[in-house]
């Protein structure tokens, strides 16, 4: 391996239909395994979280983004770099709360739901809830606790998909206990 090799920075091509169908199969299986939609939502969030805590390392390795100065910069990087890199879309960042700690990511199109219709008996299923978990897990690794949820979803008849993100606190790095 040569030092100059930089293969991690080129984005690998992948069939987006295969990706969409795989995600669909995953959600379908969860719906079979768990009784109610709430439980499925929870599982999706948990899986997303576990993806997020690892995905952030990949993100930092592939992009040359450093530590963000504030939450606005973070939101920008998420929308313009991270979403672009992993889903090929660029959501717009809007609806800032006056205090600057809450924002919305508006997804014009959501690649996860390309072939999806929600059946009537799954009305409370948050189909793309995995994304919330990913965001939460990834941001937690960079010392930011956030709350993420879907505010609007095209699957439920809304015009756009909206992810609402709320900044809770900055987690401080501490010396391990017992060390002087």
């Amino acid at each position: 391996m040569s030092r100059q090799s930089n293969r991690t920075t080129d984005s690998k091509k992948m069939n987006s239909e295969l990706f969409t169908l795989t995600y669909g199969a995953l959600v379908t299986q969860l719906c079979k395994d768990y009784e109610n939609d709430e439980e499925v939502n929870k599982q999706l969030d948990k899986m997303g979280y576990n993806i997020g805590v690892r995905l952030i390392e990949d993100f930092l390795a592939r992009s040359s983004v450093g530590r963000c100065q504030d939450f606005r910069e973070t939101a920008d990087v998420i929308a313009k770099v991270a979403f672009k890199m992993y889903l090929g879309i660029t959501p717009s960042v809007t609806n800032w709360s006056p205090a600057g700690d809450e924002l919305s990511l508006i997804l014009e199109s959501n690649p996860l739901v390309d072939f999806v219709e929600l059946p009537d008996n799954h009305s409370s299923l948050v189909y793309s809830n995995l994304l919330c978990g990913v965001l939460r897990g990834a941001l937690e690794m960079v010392q930011m606790a956030v709350d993420v949820k879907f505010a609007q979803d095209t699957l439920r008849g809304d015009n756009v998909t909206e992810i609402r993100m709320k900044f809770i606190k900055r987690m401080e790095e501490n010396l391990p206990a017992g060390d002087e």
């Binding site: 391996m1 090799s5 293969r7 991690t8 690892r54 390392e57 990949d58 930092l60 390795a61 592939r62």
Partner: peptide, 10 residues
């Protein structure tokens, strides 16, 4: 970090 730690550990 990027070619070894992330590739083989993460």
């Amino acid at each position: 970090y990027s070619t070894l730690y992330v590739e083989y550990i993460v």
